[in-house]
Write a protein that binds this DNA or RNA. Sequence first.
DNA 1: TGTCAAATTAGAATAATTATAATTTAAAAT
DNA 2: ATTTTAAATTATAATTATTCTAATTTGACA
Lengths: 159, 159
Amino acid sequence: MESRINRIKKQLHSRKYKLTPQREATVRVLLENEEDHLSAEDVYLLVKDKAPEIGLATVYRTLELLSELKVVDKINFGDGVSRYDLRQEGAAHFHHHLVCIECGAVDEIQEDLLGDVEKVVERNWHFKIKDHRLTFHGICHRCVNKHTGVEQKEQHISR
Amino acid sequence: MESRINRIKKQLHSRKYKLTPQREATVRVLLENEEDHLSAEDVYLLVKDKAPEIGLATVYRTLELLSELKVVDKINFGDGVSRYDLRQEGAAHFHHHLVCIECGAVDEIQEDLLGDVEKVVERNWHFKIKDHRLTFHGICHRCVNKHTGVEQKEQHISR
DNA sequence: TGTCAAATTAGAATAATTATAATTTAAAAT
DNA sequence: ATTTTAAATTATAATTATTCTAATTTGACA
């Protein structure tokens, strides 16, 4: 964990930014909650434990900065809040997500499944791909198991 | 166009909703701007020409309703606003998008390129897919042509 | 025609995010 | 060590998008 923070520190320095105590506390929260998809508000509340004097605006600014550096990705699952998701170190692309329309769980797929699709898109649409966002909406393995076949037909997306 | 509206009308009726004048005006705006990715505010301003007395809240409610019926899809490209995109009639899945990080253009891919990927996901993650969202970020064919090879390396995402 | 539920309206309220102005911090230069 | 300077932070205000509320209107149908 310390080494990971150090590498992020170097990334910041290489772009002439500093790793201030507030920024460090924010990064630690993200590392400690790598599995989750935290909103800025969520991060703020967690960071307050480490650095009670921090302001919400600073958290927003820090997350924005980390986005720029590709340390986190900003993503929106349609519930009106932006969420911030740590990118695997060195990953060229954002990972994929499985959003359960029943229980709301968000699972991650770290493998890149889009290699072939991207080749097709670049060739046929003459579009130079830099990154991608892929999210599947459906029923997660936990909820599938909870169900009989009949009930599964009645699901639909809602807010 | 009229027949398309009629079919939407039937869809509404089958769920016990009415096609009120406000709803019809909203649907017309969406049909007339099928290529675009309008925000609720955009739709509101356009609908006002047809039905000046309409309220913004009604537009939101109508768009929400059309989402439920899968006539439109609600999508967010990360700029803080939800946008509403007409679904091709009868399409089982949402279409894909190409977002240009340089000029901001959003192009559509109507073909479903995810068939194989979805099979893998359903099998390996035991996830029952109902729908998907796929967006590529990169440089569109128009901007690629504007550029020399060198300049292309300098692009990055910003807000 | 009267009744009733659904839909709409204007405007208030809420929630997320960004901007502002004053203050603090910390590195670099003297 | 002190001064300088730019960057960063804070508290708070402002803005923007979206949803809620209460009162009113509409329209199908008994």
